[in-house]
Design a protein around this nucleic acid. Sequence first.
DNA 1: CACCTATATGAACAAATACTCATATAAGCA
DNA 2: TGCTTATATGAGTATTTGTTCATATAGGTG
Lengths: 133, 133
Amino acid sequence: MATPIDDDRCGESMVHQDAVADCLPGQLDEAVVESLSESFKALADPTRIRILHNLSKRELCVCDLAEVLGMTQSAVSHQLRYLRALRIVKSRREGNTIYYTCDDAHIAGLLQMGIDHATHVEEDKENTHGSRS
Amino acid sequence: MATPIDDDRCGESMVHQDAVADCLPGQLDEAVVESLSESFKALADPTRIRILHNLSKRELCVCDLAEVLGMTQSAVSHQLRYLRALRIVKSRREGNTIYYTCDDAHIAGLLQMGIDHATHVEEDKENTHGSRS
DNA sequence: CACCTATATGAACAAATACTCATATAAGCA
DNA sequence: TGCTTATATGAGTATTTGTTCATATAGGTG
């Protein structure tokens, strides 16, 4: 069963019609996919991960973030603008300095879930040092 | 309290020393950050999201995936290679055709978590159509 | 063997990305 | 008002990324 049976059309690639028919109704909405990839993109960069990790714990101003991360004020500010545009982060002005915090519990949750897992994986690597299974 | 007090060094930007001191011990391990951003990068593309969404439900061969996604066999194959290199997906040969499945429950979990949220967000957009709060 | 099909892959290319540098904005203080 | 500090931002740039196109591999079948 489920043997490769040709489509009506010939010349094009053979397709398992039952498998395709099984999948087609369950496809994700295009808008969902776009918004989802946008969210994951926000978490797909080391600098932004470190920024969000810090902001999820504590309110910080730009220069403090730059100091903690060992990065340029400009680089940090550009990333904060990126995160602000996605409403992942929000800012508050106090005189001359601007404080940022995390503004999206869902993104923060995804990040924390990822951190927990990645931390365990790296710990295991440390302990078994490549030998044994 | 927590007023901007200058660092030892002058000329450089002023930093809230207490805030920085509070954060520095909690920084993520570099390897963790790298591996984490690699994982999120895998989920940060619409094509890979759709591939993984399908493979998390069902084993599929390359040409069926291409058909379901409406994409070139080559494009799908390139992305599968990418996902295979990260061990997010695994393949099984059966004669001439190669079947893929999801091979990383953690990544699949992150994806599902994201899908659930994004789906609700988009549904809300649909229903309120920009008006009301 | 020759010929087919399914998949993989290298090169090329356009688009997106993350940074740097220089400069702009905007608030505080003399 | 003019000077200083904190942050934002535009332009430029090197790198990465996702696709296409052409071709290679590898198994099936006659």
